[in-house]
Structures are given as structure tokens and as C-alpha cells.
């Protein structure tokens, strides 16, 4: 794990990507810091951070795109996977290297509230909790980028797909509000979801009995819920979709609240996508 961690970290600085990432990130955040906190004299760093969550969506794909895709393209995965290191350690090494890159920026940001405190009473607790939230949110997006990078051999595809997925989760909260929330349309949409799941299962398994029973049981379950307890459908779609909204969890941190549910949310997103990456790489052996 250590070997891969060191190698990845080193490669970010020898190939400039790392420096460019840190530089652009700092320039944008500092600009907001300067305008919001210093010029307009807002004593709270979280206001600036809240305004620039989009930076993550724009910049995280830059560091995650090559992380596994490049190994696949150069066939260096053959070296890693035939060495006496488990896939879990390989993926963790890579993930931690990415997190370190991002962590460097966060460490530098930690000095900003101190700058503010020179000029008056800065809200340090609120500022630092929002930096922690920003770090966790980035960690979650990095795990998504890592997983998408493991799906392809092309850095460009990895970057574009990561970008689209991240934009989608970024806009999810506002998109979800646009969808109808009455019970019947929720039922229809859940029914559609079952059809999609059954189709995906069919493509993967090619087994009519399993996919057919998924379809029948799923549709029956949602129909029963609709007739027996329709109140369960109240705002269900909105709730489900906003569950995917990685950014909205950041809101509670920027209020200075140490929200356990948001913490658990980010950690579980990280866990799920790191796990999926490990599974994806392991699965390659079987194809």
C-alpha cells in the first residue's frame, strides 16, 4: 500500500497535474475568500466556501481521471496485480494519495480563518467545521471519480463521465424539486425504475426466471404500497433523489453544526465507491 501511495503522490508532482490542481483550486478559493471575507468583511469563511462548492465538481476529475484508467491503458495493472499486494491495498493506496492531494489544499485553507482573526473576531469554529465538511465532500467526490476511472482505459472518458456524474449530483437537489411529487406519478416512476432494474439484471444475467421475478415482485410491491398505504409515496422521489445530492450535506457543516448523519453519509459514500472500485478491478480477472 505504501509503495503505491508514494508512487501516486510523486507522479502528481512530477507530471505537473498535482501542482496545477492545487494552484487552480487555491486561486479560485482565495479569490472568493478575498472578495467575500476580506473586501466585504464577512467574518465567516463558510460563506465563501458555500459559494464555491462547484470548484470541486470542476477540479476533482482532473486528479481522478488518470488514477486507474492510465494503469489500464499502459498495462501497468499487470505489474500491480501480479505483485504480492492485494487489490484492496492497491485501491486504498491510490485513494489515500488522492485524498492527500486534496488534503494539502485543505491544510492551506486552514490558515485563512487565522488571517481573518487578525482583523477582528472571526467565527473560527464555524469556519473550521465548514473546512472539515469541504474536505469530506471532496473525499466523497474523489471516491466517485476513482470508481469511474476504474471503468475505462481512457483518461478523457473518465474525466467527462466523472464531470457529468458530479454535475448531476451537484444539481440534484434543485432538479428533484422540479419533479412531480403526487402519489400516482411517484408510483409510475417507481414502476419505471423496476423495469430499468429488471432490464439491467437481464443484460447481466441473461436469465428470464430471475429477471421476470424481479419485475413481477417489484411491480406488485409498489402497486400494493400504492393501494394500502399511499402516504409512503409522499415526496418519495424527491427524497430519494436528494439522497444522491452530495453537495447538500455540506450545508449543515457550514452552519457550524457537526452533523453525524452528514458525516456518516460522506463516509459511507466513500466506503461504497472504494469498495465498488475494488470489486471492479477484481472482476476484471474473471472476464
Amino acid at each position: 500500500m505504501g509503495a503505491i501511495y508514494k508512487k501516486e503522490l510523486k507522479s502528481y508532482f512530477t507530471s505537473m497535474i498535482g501542482c496545477v490542481f492545487i494552484a487552480i483550486m487555491l486561486v479560485i478559493i482565495s479569490l472568493y475568500f478575498f472578495v467575500v471575507n476580506l473586501l466585504n468583511q464577512v467574518a465567516d469563511f463558510s460563506t465563501a466556501l458555500n459559494a464555491i462548492t462547484f470548484v470541486i465538481v470542476l477540479l476533482i476529475p482532473i486528479i481522478t481521471m488518470r488514477i486507474v484508467a492510465e494503469e489500464n491503458r499502459q498495462k501497468t495493472d499487470q505489474l500491480l496485480l501480479t505483485s504480492p499486494v492485494s487489490v484492496t491495498k492497491i485501491v486504498l493506496g491510490k485513494y489515500l494519495a488522492l485524498l492527500t492531494m486534496y488534503g494539502i489544499v485543505m491544510l492551506i485553507l486552514c490558515t485563512y480563518p487565522l488571517i481573518m482573526s487578525r482583523y477582528g473576531a472571526a467565527e473560527l469554529a464555524k469556519s473550521y467545521s465548514s473546512i472539515l465538511g469541504f474536505f469530506l465532500m471532496g473525499g466523497a467526490y474523489i471516491s466517485i471519480g476513482l470508481f469511474i476511472s476504474s471503468l475505462t482505459e481512457s483518461q478523457v472518458i473518465a474525466a467527462v463521465v466523472s464531470f457529468i456524474v458530479m454535475i448531476f449530483t451537484y444539481l440534484m437537489a434543485s432538479l428533484a424539486q422540479l419533479l412531480p411529487s403526487d402519489n400516482i406519478s411517484t408510483w409510475i416512476m417507481m414502476g419505471g425504475l423496476v423495469v430499468i432494474i429488471a432490464l439491467i439484471a437481464h443484460v447481466m444475467l441473461r436469465n428470464f426466471i430471475i429477471t421476470g421475478s424481479i419485475f413481477v415482485i417489484g411491480e406488485a410491491a409498489f402497486a400494493i404500497i400504492y393501494f394500502v398505504k399511499p402516504s409512503l409515496y409522499d415526496g418519495l422521489i424527491v427524497n430519494i433523489l436528494s439522497w444522491f445530492s452530495v453537495v447538500s450535506r455540506f450545508g449543515t457543516f457550514s452552519l457550524g453544526i457537526m452533523d453525524i448523519s452528514a458525516l456518516v453519509y460522506y463516509v459511507s459514500v466513500i466506503f461504497v465507491f472504494v469498495f465498488l472500485t475494488i470489486m471492479k478491478i477484481k472482476k476484471k480477472r474473471w472476464s
Partner: peptide, 14 residues
């Protein structure tokens, strides 16, 4: 095991 695959697994930037 020491393995040399068909295409040597080298990192061009190292």
C-alpha cells in the same frame, strides 16, 4: 514469481 508480460509494464514518466 517474477513476471515479464508481453508488453513490459513500465511507467513512461519514471
Amino acid at each position: 514469481i517474477g513476471y515479464l508480460p508481453e508488453q513490459p509494464p513500465l511507467y513512461p514518466d519514471m
